[in-house]
């Protein structure tokens, strides 16, 4: 086993040269690439986290807005229902009032018509009574008393029926 100083020094120098070459040509550039890649990944992760946070924020805002909207919708609906109820009651009341008015109006018209008819009937009755009286008078003049009375009754009854 020859241990020779020259060979040991040669191998130390040989190793040193390889070491230097590998450090400058291989390790440093590749480790730099690793560092830059790690940095890029970290930045990407950061951006992704930010996007996730923003999305969560937006989701929360949307949920809140939806909740608010729902609440508003419910309140608007309630208000509308109340208004509708009020309006319906108003319409009904108005309709009732109008109907009452119309009824009163038609009642009045009917009363007027009745009154007119009664007036006409009375006039006709008076005319008929006059006629009957004329007839009776004429009959008395022509026949006996009993027959005259019978005739008057018959005429009166006829008039009453007509009325």
């Amino acid at each position: 086993m020859d241990i020779q100083l020259t060979q040991i020094i040669f191998q130390i120098i040989n190793f040193g040269v390889v070491f230097g070459a590998l450090v400058f040509l291989l390790y440093k550039p590749v480790l730099k690439i690793f560092d830059e890649r790690a940095k890029r990944i970290e930045e990407g992760q950061k951006a992704a986290q930010q996007a996730i946070d923003a999305q969560e924020n937006l989701s929360n805002m949307a949920a809140e807005a939806q909740k608010k909207l729902k609440k508003e919708r419910a309140s608007v609906l309630e208000k509308a229902q109340e208004e509708a109820k009020e309006r319906a009651a108003q319409i009904i009341a108005d309709a009732k009032a109008q109907a009452q008015e119309e009824t009163e109006k038609s009642k009045k018209a009917w009363e007027e018509e009745r009154r007119q008819l009664m007036k006409a009937a009375r006039t006709e009755m008076a005319e008929a009574a006059l006629k009957a009286a004329e007839v009776v008078t004429a009959g008395i003049l022509k026949s006996d008393k009993k027959a005259q009375e019978k005739l008057i009754d018959a005429e009166l009854e006829k008039m009453l029926k007509q009325i």
């Binding site: 086993m1 060979q7 040991i8 020094i9 191998q11 130390i12």
Partner: peptide
């Protein structure tokens, strides 16, 4: 042995 000794010394 010279090589391994050199490595060991380093």
């Amino acid at each position: 042995l010279n090589t391994t000794l050199a490595l060991a010394l380093i």
